[in-house]
Design a binder for these strands. Sequence first.
DNA 1: CGGGCTTACGAATATCGTAACGATA
DNA 2: TATCGTTACGATATTCGTAAGCCCG
Lengths: 323, 323
Amino acid sequence: MKMQQLRYIVEIVNQNLNVTETANALYTSQPGISKQVRLLEDELGLEIFERNGKHIKSITPAGKKIIAIARELLVKAESIKSVANEYTRPDHGVLRIATTNTQARYMLPSVVERFSKQYPDVSLHIHQGSPTQIHDALMSGEVDLAITTEAPYLFDDLIQLPCYLWNRSAIVKADHPLAKVKNLTIEALGQYPLVTYTFGFTGVSDLDYAFNAAGILPNIVFTATDADVIKTYVRLGLGVGIMASMAHTELDHDLVAIDAGHLFRSSMTQIAFKQSTFLRNYMYDFIEYFSPHLTRPMVEKAERLRDNNAIKKLFDNVKLEVK
Amino acid sequence: MKMQQLRYIVEIVNQNLNVTETANALYTSQPGISKQVRLLEDELGLEIFERNGKHIKSITPAGKKIIAIARELLVKAESIKSVANEYTRPDHGVLRIATTNTQARYMLPSVVERFSKQYPDVSLHIHQGSPTQIHDALMSGEVDLAITTEAPYLFDDLIQLPCYLWNRSAIVKADHPLAKVKNLTIEALGQYPLVTYTFGFTGVSDLDYAFNAAGILPNIVFTATDADVIKTYVRLGLGVGIMASMAHTELDHDLVAIDAGHLFRSSMTQIAFKQSTFLRNYMYDFIEYFSPHLTRPMVEKAERLRDNNAIKKLFDNVKLEVK
DNA sequence: CGGGCTTACGAATATCGTAACGATA
DNA sequence: TATCGTTACGATATTCGTAAGCCCG
């Protein structure tokens, strides 16, 4: 069993069982991969992929388990390289983060600015996507850290750390009737067409929950995955925007934000990484820049605890910032 | 980075940094290992081993971390092979257990008998040793399961499952004054020279605790790592034996066992394995044979929980057998 | 000077790419 | 018939063993 072979079978799965694509992705020849896969299968004495004649059709049950373990193994191999780099080039490396548009656009810039100044030789890659995509990117090892607001993914080997709480504001044009309202109510919101986040994004369930509790069926006329699009359509007069308060900036002087924090449950932004990944020194710093209470000792304590319930307790007496 | 290279560096550490021994252990040539180690070090750009001229002197800090990860990686590789064997030869394989003499001698035989009948093609290897050796054997991957009575090893990637409780008896020859005592007291024990387990074995701390609590300094004249040796010296008249009650069998008709369960804290026997190991089907069965409440679903639930505190809770309402 | 690591070198083996083939949809 | 995996084969690398060299205690 060679690591290459494991890399091949994992990448074949990543490429939806297309060996030719896999060869391209790995910059090697397609027959080479076929052969190595066969050799591995011979060594293990079973088929990892089910073939239909000469086409790969699916993964066998045994193959699924093997690939899952192979993934973990390859992460360990990456960790070894990271450890080596940590010693040979302490402040050189890559930091890959998956997050939602809102985080990338409104929360990360100041952190990134500080980080880049401190670590000019660490190249930063921000992957944007839906919570599902973020989760996949993290689990497949495409990224090192995930910053999300969605529900915790239980039973995964993830360490999840609480960063801060945030809530929503209603966004309207300055001439909108709601613009002068002092105490926004859920009923008032229910009277207007709404523009908000697409389902599955940044705490939409908290929004649903509040309307349901009030017995109101909200008239959602448009959804988008990011606040900029929401603002654009609010400007077009399509409806009242409901979005993360932090997405309303001083540049939006034509729009009025009416705090709606009392109407909806707060969402929590978390930073997550796989239990098995080796964190570079600069990654600890990035985490602390993002959330000052997540100091390196705290993060390491959480790593040792492993269990997310225990981690939750660890931060019970930390007062999270509200944004 | 090749798996072979990782195997080499891990084995060099296992062999106390002696490369020649490592070569023998791995059935290969010594220069081959030296070369591969150098190649790995070149690739990683750092030294894993510190050399004094041409002798390997110690492990570098980076090397320590790398070797720790390499160990985990190799366990994953073994897991892949196990998965394959599980599918191709379900009832064939190896089961390696590390345990103390008392377990091996008095508790395992019936389990092994049943297991061997059920799985004639699984070869069983029982490693005996001190709790420390058992722990090491488990962590280094020498064995699959550990059966111990010692304190839980926290912060290790171990799953620990409670098996049963046991306590001690005082063992004397039939003509000994204590032989006719109905209610044994700690003070009575304190009047005689004692023969018991060596420190670090099978719950010696519970024994110390009871004597300390009673303000008695026990006169321990002889200690041994196993009950058979203790019995032998009791027969020689060296003193009163204190050992696991289950170690007194019908063959010991010349010795009288006086239950001392009310004098000492019960010890708990646990079965442990590394979180990262893949358990073969027959391993689940072995565990259940050993402790009927540890059914496969229960063990799998514990594996998912990972956290030993959570696991403890899982078994809170299970009434453990007392042996 | 002997145990123990490294270097040198050659044989066996493995890997990988190109080209040709075959099968499926 | 086009797409995609397998087979064949040769060039190149890698691995591993033997033999010789070298250094430290």
